[in-house]
């Protein structure tokens, strides 16, 4: 079985508001000094989903990442965690792709890898939070897509997935190959052990350009970004005080409900 996990490098979403800056003309976030990028958190959940399948089945797991400038130390983490191979598509044009264009490039890369029985992605990336790419990869590859998974098991050419709904959950089944987008409820990426760090150094890493995928230029964007800005947070919190906690509580209730 071959499993491909699509992972995206993003600015650390846990960085404080005060460190977040935008270049309004370039309509881009500016990477903060001293805060290295990370793998988008849901993509780490996707890596864990793949490793759990590998725990019980004979499987080769390939992590695939697309970006304009990819940080090797960040992307080596999947190898140390147990992924078999890393493929990077690094190309300056990747800086301004929309989700559909990224998906079409990732799908082309998956085809070049000989296809996949299961493709995992995070349910959405922590930078643009769109949640489009996984579904679009499935459409490109004409595979079924199961979104927001919290439990995945593969058996006899079928995949069984527990997925989250707004009012509960459901269990679905689909034949392989298929694309699965993973939620944080599936569980965090396993701890990295010393042994993993050592074996990561010997694992294959390939770096491709768009031209290696026989793509001269990425598909044109379907949406245009007009503006990117940090909303003003001039909200001044009205601190409600009282002679004692009870008095403050009563004043708060009056302020809210009277």
């Amino acid at each position: 079985m071959q499993i491909v996990v699509c992972i995206k490098q993003v600015l650390d979403p846990e960085m404080p508001y005060s460190a977040f800056r935008i270049d309004p003309d370039g309509k881009r976030a500016i990477p903060p000094q001293g805060t290295p990028p990370v793998i988008s958190p849901y993509d780490e959940n996707a890596l864990e989903a793949a490793l759990r399948v590998k725990d019980v089945h004979e499987a080769k797991v390939i992590a695939l990442s697309l970006g304009s400038r990819l940080a090797r130390p960040v992307l080596n983490k999947p190898l140390a965690a147990g992924i078999d191979e890393l493929v990077l598509i690094e190309d300056p044009v990747a800086a301004d792709l929309d989700s559909f264009a990224s998906a079409s490039i990732l799908a082309a890369a998956i085809s070049k890898l000989g296809g996949a029985d299961v493709v995992f992605t995070g349910r959405q990336a922590a930078d643009w939070d769109a949640g489009i790419a996984g579904c679009a990869i499935a459409e490109e590859l004409k595979m079924p897509c199961i979104t927001v998974a919290r439990k995945v098991s593969v058996q006899n050419g079928m995949v069984q997935v527990e997925r989250l709904l707004s009012d509960g959950s459901e269990v679905v089944e689909a034949p392989l190959p298929c694309v699965i987008t993973v939620d944080s409820e599936l569980g965090e990426l396993r701890q990295i052990k010393m042994q993993g760090l050592i074996s990561a150094k010997k694992k294959p890493v390939s770096a491709w350009k768009l031209s290696d995928l026989k793509l001269e230029s990425p598909p044109p964007p379907r949406c245009e970004l007009l503006e990117l800005y940090i909303p003003e947070r001039k909200r001044v919190c009205e601190i409600i005080t009282g002679e004692n906690p009870e008095d403050a509580a009563i004043k708060l209730a009056n302020r809210l409900f009277e």
Partner: peptide
């Protein structure tokens, strides 16, 4: 976008 740190107009 960016976890509500910014707004994008598209």
């Amino acid at each position: 976008v960016y976890g509500c740190k910014a707004l994008a107009v598209m």
